[in-house]
Design a protein around this nucleic acid. Structure first.
Length: 589
RNA sequence: CGGAACGUGGCGCAGCUUGGUAGCGCACCUGCUUUGGGAGCAGGGGGUCGGAGGUUCAAAUCCUCUCGUUCCGACCA
């Protein structure tokens, strides 16, 4: 039994000044967590109970799916990560340290390498596959900016699992199994979620999906179709290209003087105003222009390369989308000094004429998928003060490839069905990947198949942020009064509030009730503080968020207690004699 | 990593402009009263003013650096 009189917690009347998002504010105010380090939190007794409940649910669902739990160290040597290339690829994101002999170690940001090596260590036959193993482990990432309490920390707990299969069909099946296990887990946690197509980032691999809890404080932006069930992280949206246009009979490209057109808007105004430049049938819009910009890619080994991106002028570049495709390279600004080194680039008037690996600049040129063969554009003529009109893709220029770089707008057509997309924010609570053979190849994980031939194992990796899930559950359930836990996660089933003077019989009656409830198998938190005013107790009960609040007070004179539902606020007077039975029913339903 | 703001008992804040005994509310301790929506009175304990260096007779206050926090951007399973 938890007793407020002796519980190690102190609720705060005011919000801590460093807490912005609601879950962070309320978890601190309710005495669930305390900040201990930049991006590190201490769990207090109530918080630890909640955390363990979440962890238990995750573990039970993994076990139910037939996955086996193992446990690795978090402190690992450099070598496996060196072999996989991630010692470098992870860059500043990983905590590195040296032992007394000067050997490199890291605090694991994730464990693909170690799982791969462990399986290599023990297994060598196709008969041993498929295999699913997982762990619930502390991970370390040196985040540039930890924020939002438990939502982004530098030390956090993740449930990570890995599947090992002999072939691609097996991988797909393993992936589906995990997908279903995740659906079950998040449903049981009471977390609303959206499954979105994602990109793999530093993990490598092909297919991947994220589980996002849709809330505004989330850091991930995703789109979903207002008509069909398409949903994707904005980074992963693949724009459906329009049909190619036959080149025959399209107007010829012509270079024109267009002074004083530093922006897309001024350019569009000029071509619409001048009779000789007007479109025969309609006004030109920004979408008719082709905007070209050059960025530098910083590769993990420290080298740079230039990349030119062409996209319709009504779109901005979404750097996250670019980086999702060029990773692990980072995108950095193309500086004046870089322009100086490449005279083919005329700042403000860069056009496809100079771009591309086989043209004057020699810079790799990738374009938006909307730039299809036969599409005609107003774009830079690679000369100061001049643009070219009707420059036609496939006839006048040929880019080196396609890139999804343009930002996605609400209302854009769904790639699947063409209806409008809407944009929303979410917290990433899970991510599943079909990794494929990247790690197995790098680390030499092979088995013999039916024919005695060596085959590289194919892998999947799957993660749930356990400590983050605590915040996500808090975030999706709280209200203006405080936290509001789902019963299975709550630190208790019932929160008994005792009111009245110490001389009144409410105290002993509440104690008796608490004991009876525990005997009946319920988890009880009793506010047995003496001399604390009722208002404080009521407010604390609402702040702490136990789903059922029982008040033993005034009503006792009439032989009744009050049962309050934390979420709905609904109150019921229940005769003391029926209290246990009633509450057991409430808590078991 | 760029831009901005802020670091003063456990929490929320004032004091800094104009250098001179470190203050308020909540929380905490003692006593009395009070007990259904953040009680009252009286008394009390607790802070090297984030850290380091500098200027000065004297620094919470002025200067420099540094660490941390928050917001915006960048980054990020």
């Amino acid at each position: 039994m938890l007793r407020m009189s002796s519980l190690f917690l102190r609720t705060l009347r005011e919000d801590p000044s460093d807490a912005e998002v609601p879950s962070h504010r309320l978890l601190v105010r309710g005495g669930y967590i305390r900040r201990a380090a930049p991006g590190g939190y201490t769990w207090l007794p109530l918080g630890w109970i909640v955390y363990r409940n979440v962890e238990r649910i995750v573990r039970e669902e993994m076990d139910k799916a037939g996955f086996q739990e193992v446990h690795f160290p978090a402190l690992l040597p450099r070598e496996p990560y060196e072999i996989s290339g991630r010692w470098t690829d992870y860059g500043d994101g990983v905590f590195r340290l040296k032992d007394r002999k000067g050997n490199d170690f890291l605090l694991a940001p994730t464990h693909e390498e170690m799982f791969t090596l462990l399986v290599k260590d023990l297994y060598s036959s196709y008969k041993d596959l498929p295999l699913h193993i997982y762990q619930i482990q502390t991970k370390y990432r040196d985040e540039a900016r930890p924020r939002a309490g438990l939502l982004r920390t530098r030390e956090f707990v993740m449930k990570d699992s890995y599947s090992f299969d002999i072939d691609d069909e097996g991988l797909v099946k393993s992936y589906e199994q995990h997908r279903q296990a995740y659906i079950d887990t998040f449903n049981r946690l009471g977390l609303p979620f959206v499954m979105v197509s994602a990109v793999s980032g530093a993990m490598g691999g092909s297919a991947s999906e994220e589980f996002l809890a849709p809330i505004d404080v989330g850091e991930d932006t995703f789109v979903r179709c207002t008509n069909c069930d398409y949903a994707a992280n904005t980074e992963a949206v693949q724009v459906r290209p329009p049909d190619a246009i036959p080149l025959d009979g399209l107007p010829a490209a012509r270079v024109e003087d267009t002074p004083d057109t530093p922006t897309i808007e001024t350019l569009v105004d000029v071509v619409n105003e001048r009779a000789d430049l007007r479109h025969p049938d309609r006004d030109w819009t920004a979408a008719d222009t082709l905007k070209n910009l050059v960025v530098k890619l910083k590769h993990p080994d420290g080298t740079f390369s230039a990349l030119a991106i062409g996209l319709p002028g009504d779109r901005e570049v979404d750097l996250k989308r670019v980086e999702a495709q060029v990773g692990p390279a980072e995108v950095v600004a193309f500086e004046p000094a870089d322009f100086a080194k490449n005279p083919a680039l005329v700042k403000g008037y860069i056009g496809p004429g100079a771009l591309g690996e086989h043209n004057a600049s020699g810079i790799r040129y990738l374009v938006d998928p909307r730039v299809v063969e036969g599409s005609a554009w107003i774009t830079g003529a690679d000369q100061p003060g001049r643009h070219v009109i009707n420059l036609t893709m496939g006839r006048d220029f040929t880019p080196d490839g396609v890139i999804e770089a343009a930002e996605i707008h609400g209302g854009d057509p769904c790639p699947r069905c063409g209806n409008a997309l809407e944009i929303a924010k979410g917290i990433e609570i899970g991510h599943i990947f079909q990794l494929g053979r990247r790690y197995a190849t790098a680390l030499g994980l092979t088995v013999l198949d039916q024919n005695g031939k060596t085959k590289v194992v194919t892998m999947g990796s799957y993660g749930i942020g356990v400590s983050r899930a605590v915040a996500a559950v808090a975030e999706t359930t709280l209200d203006e009064k405080g936290l509001c836990w789902p019963r299975e996660i709550s630190p208790a089933d019932v929160h008994i509030v005792v009111t009245g003077k110490p001389s009144e019989p409410t105290g002993p009656a509440a104690e008796e009730l608490a004991l009876a409830l525990e005997t009946a198998g319920l988890r009880v938190l009793i506010d047995d503080r003496v001399g604390t005013s009722p208002g404080i107790k009521f407010n604390d009960a609402e702040l702490l968020g136990v789903p059922t609040i029982v008040v033993v007070g005034k009503g006792l004179a009439n032989g009744a207690i009050e049962v309050k539902d934390r979420r709905t606020g609904e109150r019921t007077d229940v005769p003391v004699a029926d209290a246990v039975e009633h509450l057991v029913q409430v808590c078991r339903s």
